[in-house]
């Protein structure tokens, strides 16, 4: 059955009619062509689908349309405003990207961390991105990129 779902997506109010148990991940990719949000496992283990929901990092493969109603969603496409965000810049500078498939998810997790805590310790950084699997980089340059953003 189709439901009317209204929410704020990357700063703009949007409204769609969709099945209440459709995944947020599919809504973003299929309805809005926001393909920066990736699917790597579909069960909440890899973090490639991470977006911000009301300023908290969530796995969009586990969030259903019904839950999205009335919320505020930020995806990787909404992070850069008037040029790259500091985090994005530092990911480039630190070499925190190889294949780049995990990158949007990792950036969203770190973005959420910095919203909540502007000066996290290395442990807190690791905790924040522990749910993001990256098979390429070994995480070192990712952690550096996040640290560089704080200082």
């Amino acid at each position: 059955m189709s439901h009317k779902i209204e929410f704020i997506l990357n700063g703009k109010s949007v409204c769609i009619n969709t099945n209440a148990n459709r995944r947020l991940l599919d809504i973003l990719r299929e309805e809005f062509q926001l393909t920066g949000t990736k699917e790597g496992c579909s069960i909440g283990e890899c973090g490639a689908c991470t977006v911000l929901m009301n300023n908290k990092a969530v796995n969009s493969c586990l969030v259903l349309a019904g839950q999205v109603n009335g919320s505020e969603i930020l995806t990787i496409e909404g992070v850069a405003k008037n040029g790259l965000h500091k985090l994005q810049e530092n990911f480039l500078m630190a070499g925190a990207i190889q294949c780049g498939f995990c990158t949007p998810g990792v950036i969203m997790s770190s973005y959420a961390l910095l919203l909540e805590n502007s000066n996290p310790t290395e442990e807190e950084i690791k905790e924040a991105i522990a749910g993001n699997l990256c098979r390429c980089t070994g995480y070192k340059q990712i952690i550096k990129a996040i640290k560089d953003t704080i200082s």
Binding site: L34, G36, T75, L92, M93, G95, I97, G100, P104
Partner: peptide, 13 residues
């Protein structure tokens, strides 16, 4: 810096 980096950090790759 990687040449393909910009597209990868913005989700446009």
């Amino acid at each position: 810096i990687r040449q393909d980096g910009y597209a990868k950090v913005t989700g446009s790759a």
